[in-house]
Amino acid sequence: MPGTPGVEFAGSLVADQRGYYREAGFTSTRFHGSGPRFPSVTASVASGAAFVGVTTTDAVAREAAAGAPLRIIGAQRQKSPWAIVSLGDRPIRTPQEMIGMRVATAMGSAAVWASFLAAAGVPATAVRQVVVPDHAQALAQALTQRQVDAALSSVADVPVALARQGIGCSTFLLADHGYPLVSNVYVVTADALTAARGTVKAFLTAEVRGWKQNLADPMLAAQLTTDVYAKSLRLDVREQLAENRALNDLVQTAQTRRDGLFTMTDALIEANIRLLSTGPAAPVAGHLFDLSVLRELYEEWPRLI
């Protein structure tokens, strides 16, 4: 499964450490990296180098539009973690309140920023975009030094960095203002849904168990990150715990409590397809999302919900 092992993949780390993959029938688990030195997650899955990947919804849509036989089989997070963060003494609570303001964005988030502005109905020319290096510290520094009025960030990045400094902030999710993309989607090939359907179901079973355990005990994955999987990075366990809790709020919702982790309502799938169809992947085929294996899993094992 492509991805750098870290608290972002908390449930997967728990599933690996607790033996849930092994109990599901897998003899071994390998976490493959993604980034400049590695093939993309979608390319790894499409080529067969990885059985399943965790990536962004728009990345899958782009590859599928180019002909890759990929299918999204579930979504870890029902909402995108992208948010607009401002300081507590000068809060910005809606997209309209950004008009006339300076907003810091990282170099790698240009597509998200443009898509969000369009979805929220805010002209790009109405907001002054200030591009900074692609890491949370740079975004937080731009805010605290009053170089900008707000920053585009994951809820697990700048808010956590500011809290570490004892600085209060105001945050609103892009997902609550016209940007409904789900996040950290599971992707497999279309062939896997027929030729290896049982294996796909076994994988999802282990993942569900790992994420349920992470939701119940977020410190476990934080410690696994700092002490085992990313030990060489010398991460702070308190920061990893704060990030894990922030992301968990996007994993477990009223809908997933009812229907099960990683599920999406038909309305949410349709909203994702509509937004994706306005971008470079347009038009997005409805069969890009196939949650049939996940639904079968919960029908067979309702105690996993």
Rank of each mutant, 00 (worst) to 15 (best):
Arg128Gly: 02
Leu143Cys: 08
Ala140Asp: 06
Asn184Gln: 13
Arg164Lys: 14
Ala119Val: 13
Val122Asp: 10
Ser183Phe: 10
Gln145Leu: 08
Val132Thr: 08
Phe203Thr: 04
Gly166Lys: 04
Leu181Val: 12
Pro180Cys: 04
Ala196Met: 06
Ala138Asp: 10
Asn184Ser: 14
Asp157Tyr: 13
Val131His: 07
Val155Tyr: 06
Ala126Tyr: 02
Thr189Ser: 11
Val188Ile: 10
Asp191Pro: 03
Ala120Val: 13
Ala175Leu: 08
Ala192Trp: 01
Pro180Asp: 01
Pro123Ala: 00
Val158Met: 01
Phe172Ile: 04
Val160Ser: 07
Tyr186Met: 14
Ala138Cys: 06
Ser153Gly: 08
Ser154Pro: 15
Val155Arg: 10
Leu117His: 11
Gly121Pro: 13
Val122Cys: 14
Gln147Thr: 05
Val187Asp: 12
Asp149Lys: 00
Lys201Leu: 13
Gln137Ile: 13
Gln145Trp: 03
Leu174Met: 09
Ile167Glu: 07
Leu181Gln: 13
Gln145Phe: 06
Asp157Gly: 15
Gln141Tyr: 08
Pro180His: 02
Ala161Asn: 11
Ala140Leu: 01
Gln145Ser: 13
Val155Gly: 13
Ala163Cys: 06
Val130Asp: 03
Ala138Pro: 06
Ala202Lys: 10
Thr205Arg: 11
Phe172Cys: 11
Thr194Lys: 02
Val148His: 00
Ser154Gln: 14
Val132Tyr: 02
Leu173Lys: 09
Arg197Glu: 13
Val130Gln: 01
Arg146Cys: 03
Gln141Gly: 13
Asp149Leu: 01
Val127Ala: 01
Pro159Glu: 02
Val155Asn: 15
Arg128Met: 04
Arg146Lys: 07
Gly168Pro: 12
